[in-house]
Amino acid sequence: MRIGIAQMRPQLGRLEQNIENHLKLINKAKEKQVDLLVFPELSVTGYHLFDITFDVARRLTSAEIQMLIQQADGIDVVFGFVEHSSDHYFYNSAVYASHRRLTHLHRKVYLSTYGTFHETRYFGTGKSVRSFSTRFGQLGLLISEDAWHFSLPYLLAMDGAELTIVLSNSIVNGVTKEGILTHQKWKTLLTSHAMGYGNFSLFANRVGSEDNFSFYGGSFIVDPFGEIVTEAPVFQEELMILDLDMDQVRQARFQTPLLRDEKINLTIRELQRIRQKQTDGGENR
């Protein structure tokens, strides 16, 4: 399977411009025989929307989103947008489209609201995480902060995901002599996931700036052995393409059968006990 990451530069709140850019990149990917093209988080809208959220939210059935889904023709496409739900809530959502249809919708579960982030002010929280079948195997979608909560990649892996796609909008928020702090942490995080679950992990980040915030790019893919097999440059637009051998999942899981030996009943039992303890202790999360 040939996978592409569109490390692009969305314009804040400029839906029309961004969609046009999506079309360009999808066509370019098609020319290069890409099977699955992944855009970053909120690729259709940009990230620091604040009050613009209200103006750029679109229903799944809207002309703009449907038009993008229609592009998934001979190629599968993952992109991010602000979803306006039927009950008029807004979500930070990601679409997986294939054969000109919606295969899967993921609503960001863990919204970042600390330090420089303000997401719960504007977005509702997603209530579920599911893997889904594609022509390449079982896949899962996570949006940025979702991946930092170990429970979600765990659930996706237990639900059969062979490739976990993380759409991100990661900014420079600390630089040391070792480089961009967050970028290093993302690599540690996703290589750990891949090693632990014997699946592919993909980090799709954007570039460009929004006021004083700099998105650094540096998208990468980790194989099921936990090795970073390809990495895009930082601060540059890039259509990164890589041929993935999904059979590596079989090899990795035979070599290190961690997922096979995972004791799901023990986990459930202990989590129930912990939940009970928290309820008894007056803590109800």
């Binding site: 040391t176 650094y216 930082v234």
Partner: peptide
């Protein structure tokens, strides 16, 4: 307090230009 000079220069110049 030591910075990665090359990286910080890239961050500052690319965002300055874009903005």
């Amino acid at each position: 307090l030591r910075l990665d000079e090359r990286l910080v220069t890239t961050i500052l110049t690319s965002t300055l230009r874009e903005e």
